[in-house]
Design a protein around this nucleic acid. Structure first.
Lengths: 149, 149
DNA sequence: TGCGATTATATCGCGCACGATTAAATCGTT
DNA sequence: AACGATTTAATCGTGCGCGATATAATCGCA
């Protein structure tokens, strides 16, 4: 038995150990990285998911809510309030597509487009906070992109 | 320029591309894995963070709120309401430590301890849903544990 | 031309996750 | 003993993330 007493178990259930769980490593890493971003994103007035949405829009604007949801793998129930907050901040505009009134088109405002310059430094700043080589980062990124697709 | 028109940018800012961001790969993978767990955890009546808390308690109960927070890397502002919900479900008991009334001791109830048996199958069930070799999983887990510590 | 089915977004309720703050118990130093 | 500093949880407000549901526009087909 382990050094620490375990008052709940008779025999250990190996597979249930927290330190063997990929899910916990993933959960913890995601939380830690969000916390690392926070001070940098505070300076931009963005939350972490808002920053991700802006990344998508900086690549191509306008986009429909649906297209954003596909890119970010998020539901409209998550995106709609988030986009309304970006709209309130004056970073995006939300308008119905006249071609199909079901669609809502999200467009960067000038302020939203301009924020891109301030955000340019973020990726490198963050990279410095990770204890990681550049090639390790690329490898890890690709593995994660392939995970649970 | 890329095949799709990009009305926002003059020259591309390579580092800002979503598909180059480790943060997004991590964020997406964490969300996807949570969604994979959901049906299995629904059967146990647990959310994903509740499942993680139970994993910690199945390893050793009782534990203080602080010790749980350290193990899970979560603040009391997250844990306290979560533990109250587990208490409401009858899975844990929360009592003040008589030795030091500041501490709250979280103890598995019989039902909480018993749930462990039902949870035993979860890790393997989840593993089957990931497109992953066992050694890849271990490697990925260790890399994530080292990330942003 | 209708009218049921589908599609696109929005709304609602719940449970995190965290920073800021509060409250209470304990500790340390005099 | 006293009292300021520290430690431990709890509380509060904001913003996700999602399932279930609602609403409205469009489509398809008789």
């Amino acid at each position: 038995m382990s050094a620490k007493t375990n008052k709940t178990s008779g025999e250990p259930v190996e597979a249930l150990r927290l330190d063997r769980q990929l899910c916990f490593a993933l959960y913890g890493a995601a939380n830690r990285v969000t916390r690392l971003y926070r001070p940098m994103l505070d300076a931009l007035g963005l939350t972490y998911p808002q920053y991700l949405a802006m990344l998508v829009l900086w690549e191509a604007s306008p986009r429909t809510v649906g297209a954003l949801g596909e890119a970010l793998d998020l539901e409209s129930s998550t995106l709609t309030p988030l986009l309304k907050r970006l709209e309130t901040q004056g970073l995006v505009a939300r308008t119905r597509d006249p071609e199909d009134e079901r669609r809502v088109v999200v467009t960067l405002t000038e302020a939203g487009a301009a924020l891109r310059d301030k955000a340019k430094a973020v990726p490198e700043q963050l990279f410095c906070k990770l204890n990681l080589q550049l090639d390790e980062l690329g490898d890890l990124r690709e593995r994660l992109k392939a995970l649970a697709v």
